[in-house]
Simulated assay, not measured.
Amino acid sequence: MNNTTRNSKSLAVVRDSSELDGAKARILVFAGSTREASFNRKLAIAAARAIEEAGGEATLMDLRDHPLPLYDGDLEASAGLPLGVRPLKELFKSHDGLFIASPEYNGSMSAVLKNTLDWVSRPAGDEAGTVPYANKTVALGAASPGALGGLRGLVHLRAVLQSVGALVLSEQIAVGNAASAFTAEGGLADERMQQMLRRTVARLVDVASRLRD
């Protein structure tokens, strides 16, 4: 499993098709939260491990490493894309799929996640804003202290991703009662939920591989 680090540049390199032939499906994994103790950060780590077990190559990204201003059309018009946007775009484009662990804020996704997705969707020169999402297979997850596990927020996230051209799988995972849901080793304590995570990421790796090929 690859982990992004502070100021890392190695992950923002686009691979051409010849480099991808026969390679593992590359999945970018991140949580829509910047909290150190975020339940969704724990879910993202568990998903990255499950992706590796399913035969994929996981890159674990931390949104704290990619701070962006709030989207402002006037800022974009006067100064262009902020410096942090282009590396994020390249990071999205260099992977075959995404796994997003999304916290639920007031029945929707977090502001930092929506802001990230919005900036990544902005055009860059002659390149359409939807390019980083084109042919991208996405699986969604959420973890929440509540019984529904953040399920309501995934409805909104799914709609946003589909609107920019991503293929969002029907398979997803919502982990309720998250305060006690994770083991000390980072897995899911409930075996049924762990199996659901394995099935979700196995489907993600399979579809991402097929679309890439």
Rank of each mutant, 00 (worst) to 15 (best):
V138R: 00
L204A: 03
D190C: 01
R199C: 03
V138H: 02
R199Q: 13
G129H: 08
G150A: 05
R152M: 07
G165A: 14
R199K: 13
V175A: 10
M196K: 15
K136R: 09
G125L: 12
L188K: 05
R122N: 10
G176Q: 11
G129L: 09
E191S: 14
S121G: 12
A124Y: 15
Q195W: 05
T183D: 05
G141F: 05
R199F: 10
A139F: 04
G141H: 01
L148I: 11
V207K: 03
D190Y: 06
M196A: 15
Q172Y: 13
L161I: 04
A134T: 10
R192K: 14
G153F: 10
T130P: 00
I173Q: 03
L151K: 10
R158T: 08
V205D: 03
M193C: 03
H156E: 04
E191N: 06
R199P: 01
Q172N: 14
R158P: 08
S170I: 07
E127R: 13
D206Y: 12
A142W: 02
A178L: 00
P132F: 14
A139S: 12
L154W: 08
Q162T: 09
L157Y: 08
Q195T: 15
G153P: 08
A159H: 10
A181Y: 06
A178N: 03
R198F: 06
L154M: 12
S180H: 11
A189Y: 03
E171V: 06
Y133D: 01
A147K: 14
A174E: 04
Y133R: 00
A143F: 02
Q194H: 08
I173W: 09
L167G: 04
V175W: 10
K136M: 10
H156V: 15
V138N: 00
L154G: 05
E171Q: 15
Y133G: 01
A128W: 08
S209Q: 14
L140H: 01
V168T: 05
Q172H: 14
A178P: 08
G149E: 01
V155D: 12
L157K: 05
G165D: 06
A208P: 09
G146M: 07
S121V: 11
G146E: 04
S144L: 02
D126Y: 14
G186Q: 00
A124Q: 13
K136S: 02
T137C: 09
A147H: 12
G141Y: 02
N177P: 02
G129E: 07
V205E: 01
R152A: 11
A181L: 08
A179I: 07
L151G: 05
G141W: 02
M196T: 14
A184K: 12
G165M: 08
D190M: 04
S144R: 02
D126E: 15
Q194M: 13
A143C: 03
R203A: 15
S163M: 05
R199W: 11
S209E: 09
A139G: 06
L188C: 00
G165W: 07
G187I: 03
A189F: 02
G146W: 10
N177M: 09
G125A: 12
F182E: 01
E185V: 00
T183N: 07
S170Y: 12
S121R: 12
A202G: 15
V131C: 07
